[in-house]
Design a protein around this nucleic acid. Structure first.
Length: 357
DNA sequence: TCTGGGGTCCTAGGACCC
DNA sequence: TCTGGGGTCCTAGGACCC
């Protein structure tokens, strides 16, 4: 069956919310991210005024500060953005057969049964944009296409406050001139590898020998080839349950003091556990993450034969640290739990065949 | 350019079981 | 004596997303 997919992408979401909450910020360059005084960390989002100075998300905050010391630098107010995001997702959900959240500020909507053609899809997109603007005083850009890939690239095509429709018959030509890095799943590494093979644009990828792509990238090679033809069969899926919960922190200064780091690990374990309780989940796997001063990063994990609780989480995280830490200064530590098991009342536990401790 | 914090998915080897 | 094939789970690493 032919599908019609919308990709809704909020415009510079975090800074747009900050401007809405504090109109004095409008017209000024605004950067949401790490504290430039501390100097460690990156830009989370910046508005279009800040982009004029060359600031981009993901950039080191120290560099952003050098590019524009007069910009307004704000910390990340995650709770606020999450609340606004939840409201927007609730609005979007009304119009979709299925909705897939993609971060706080993006979503895919499968509207195949809600509209009969691209004209109706476009009208629906306009309605959604209007409703979000009225309710939230925020703008978004929407892409419409025959699949997630095309919809996503379309939403990025005309920003901010854009609306781009790409029909199935137009998809291949639409993608051809764009760089391969626009494809979902093509990051820095894959982009470099493709460049070494003489492939820079999606059009070049589409014309390449798929068996050579399979040799180089395995299963992903075929997917790359298909995406370049504008083909993407992946479903829009409501992700119901969370698969993992984690907390990590980059220390203000690298340290070789393991007991100090172990204290941080205790705190992270408690934060993670609090989140578990809130969601009424237990866990079976604990993962400890260490990043050293040279940026080398390792993860170590341990899976229990039964459900864990706080004391166990703390002890295992600590043990994984002390057992595995090398004699190098540590930059970051993190604690993650996975193999999550819902605890909706004790009754649900009957489904779970784990021995109790 | 000196690289956050929250996630997801994939791969590959080894253990273990039938 | 030397050795199958399939399946699942665990661990570690890595790429990628916003």
């Amino acid at each position: 069956m032919k599908r019609i997919i919308l990709h809704v992408d909020m415009d510079h979401f975090f800074t747009a919310i900050e401007e809405r909450e504090n109109p004095e910020l409008r017209g000024k360059p605004v950067v949401v991210g790490a504290d430039p005084k501390k100097g460690r960390g990156v830009v989370s989002t910046c508005n279009y005024e800040a982009r004029k100075f060359g600031i981009k998300s993901g950039m080191a905050i120290s560099r952003a500060y050098k590019l524009c010391p007069d910009a307004v630098f704000l910390p990340v107010n995650y709770e606020l953005y999450k609340r606004v995001s939840d409201e927007i997702m609730a609005t979007l959900r009304k119009y979709a057969d299925r909705l897939e959240r993609w971060g706080l500020d993006e979503a895919f909507l499968d509207v195949s049964s809600k509209v009969k053609d691209y004209e109706e899809a476009e009208a629906l997109a306009r309605k959604i944009k209007k409703e979000i603007l009225e309710k939230e005083k925020l703008t978004c850009s929407i892409g419409i296409g025959p699949n997630k890939l095309v919809a996503k690239i379309a939403s990025d095509f005309n920003k901010p406050d854009g609306l781009t429709v790409v029909r199935e018959s137009e998809a291949k030509d639409f993608l051809a001139p764009l760089p391969v890095s626009r494809l979902i799943g093509v990051g820095r590494k894959t982009e470099r590898k493709l460049k070494e093979m003489g492939i820079s644009t999606i059009g070049e990828l589409a014309a390449f020998d798929p068996s050579k792509l399979a040799d180089e990238f395995g299963k992903f090679g075929l997917r790359l080839y298909l995406m370049a033809q504008g083909i993407d069969e992946s479903e829009v899926r409501d992700r119901d349950e969370r698969k993992s919960i984690s907390r990590e922190i980059t220390l203000d200064e690298d340290t070789g003091d393991l007991e100090f780091v172990a204290g941080i690990v205790d705190v992270l374990s408690e934060c993670v556990y609090k989140e578990l309780l809130k969601r009424d989940f237990s866990f079976r796997t604990v993962t400890l993450k260490i990043r050293y001063e040279d940026f080398e990063t390792h993860v170590f994990s341990k899976t229990l034969p039964h459900l864990g609780e706080l004391r166990l989480l703390r002890n295992i995280a600590r043990e994984l640290l002390l057992l595995n830490a090398e004699n190098k200064k540590i930059r970051l530590v993190g604690v993650r739990v996975s193999n999550l098991v819902p605890l909706k009342g004790q009754k649900k536990l009957d489904f779970v065949n784990f021995k109790t401790p």
